[in-house]
């Protein structure tokens, strides 16, 4: 089985993240780049599917050259090879453009299953899996907390607010996963050493037959108009219980639309 897992490098959520003042895109130099956490769960699920059904796991990422760190981590966890789409023309691409670019690569390298994390911690759109499925004309199975493959049939449990749905489709398909799905393994040192020798194919926009006019900041369908630094957290409100504490707390929650 040909399993492709899409991963993304994001600015470390433990550090202060910034937008660039010049073009209002994410400042990828300001913070250390780390693998988007939910992508580790996607890699883990891809590895488990390979362990159960055989085949090969290919890591696919679109990102600047320093995204090789993220590729290496996925390879160290056990993926077999990687494709890195890297080109200055891609800078500032929005969700729609990213899905177009990745779909071009996926059409080129082929797949039985594409697995993604449900969203990234930087853009937080949560729409890439749906967009990819549409562009690839493949069924989308989103927010999976369980994945099973039986022959050419794929079944997932789709996490919902009220429990889960059972969703079934035939391969090839696009799956997005949530954190409840598994516990990602740590890369082993042998895996880390072996990752050096695993093939990483670097593709430019031209290599992937991506129309450069359709990607990048200039032709993006969305635009960041303005941004401001979040104000420092205001001091909390202390409610003193004088017999009416419960009412005051309820009123506070209602004022914040929590109840």
């Amino acid at each position: 089985m040909n399993i492709v897992v899409c991963v993304k490098q994001v600015p470390d959520t433990a550090t202060e993240r910034k937008l660039r003042p010049d073009d209002k895109t994410i400042d990828r130099e300001a913070a250390e780049g780390v693998i988007n956490e939910i992508c580790e769960y996607a890699v883990e699920e891809a590895l488990r599917l390979k362990e159960a059904h055989g085949g090969e796991v290919t890591v696919l990422t679109m990102g600047p050259s320093k995204a090789t760190d993220t590729i290496r981590k996925a390879l160290a966890m056990g993926a077999d090879k990687a494709v890195h789409l890297v080109d200055d023309a891609l800078h500032g691409s929005d969700g729609l453009q990213t899905s177009y670019a990745l779909a071009q690569v996926l059409k080129k390298i082929g797949f039985d299953v594409v697995i993604l994390g449900s969203e990234s911690t930087d853009a937080r759109m949560g729409t890439l899996a749906a967009m990819l499925a549409e562009r690839l004309d493949a069924p989308q199975l989103s927010l999976a907390n369980k994945v099973e493959i039986d022959g050419s049939t794929i079944r997932i449990q789709r996490l919902t607010d009220y429990g889960f749905d059972r969703v079934e489709a035939s391969l090839p398909a696009v799956v997005s996963v949530v954190e409840k799905i598994n516990e990602p393994r740590y890369p082993s040192f042998k895996g880390i050493m072996a990752a050096k020798k695993k093939p990483v194919e670097t593709l430019s926009v031209a290599d992937a037959e991506i129309d450069a006019a359709k990607v990048g900041l200039a032709s993006a369908a969305t635009e960041v108009v303005d941004f401001a630094v979040a104000p420092p957290r205001a001091a909390g409100t202390i409610v003193k219980d004088e017999g009416d504490g419960g009412v005051k707390v309820a009123e506070f929650l209602a004022s914040k639309k929590f109840v």
Binding site: T68, K73, Y186, P187, I192, A195
Partner: peptide, 15 residues
């Protein structure tokens, strides 16, 4: 090196 940093991150996250 990249590998050495990955060793660092792995052990740090395990610990």
């Amino acid at each position: 090196s990249d590998e050495q940093r990955l060793v660092r991150d792995t052990v740090r996250s395990y610990a």
